[in-house]
């Protein structure tokens, strides 16, 4: 799961709701709100949040998705981690 331009607190909340990196979720409704199901949890997301989440379709009917970081976002993450590694 990757989030572009979302605040840290929002990312933390999404993680706590089960929307973690590479989690499996199903999109129950698109639009505003977008409704996704992670495990047994249905989560409503305002469009301004859902539009910043990257998901990758996982099967033929497109209802189940697997999410993973995009290469660009992975690069950003690595750049953010580097200063900490040096310390």
């Amino acid at each position: 799961m990757q989030y572009a331009d979302l605040q840290c607190d929002e990312c933390d909340l999404l993680h706590a709701l089960g929307m973690t990196d590479r989690c499996k979720l199903s999109v129950r409704k698109t639009g505003n709100p977008c409704i996704v199901q992670v495990g047994a949890t249905r989560i409503g997301l305002a469009q301004s949040v859902s539009s910043k989440i990257t998901v990758i379709p996982d099967d033929a009917n497109g209802t189940v998705t697997r999410v993973s970081p995009s290469p660009q976002q992975q690069q950003q993450q690595q750049q953010q981690q580097q200063p900490g590694d040096e310390q």
Binding site: K29, G31, I35, Q37, G39, T41, R42
Partner: peptide, 22 residues
């Protein structure tokens, strides 16, 4: 069958779609 909670429910989907429709 729904051990990891992935079971879907079309009635809930329809209700959610209606109740959150613009």
């Amino acid at each position: 069958p729904a051990a990891v909670g992935e079971a879907s429910d079309s009635i809930i989907d329809r209700l959610d779609a209606a109740f959150t429709h613009p």
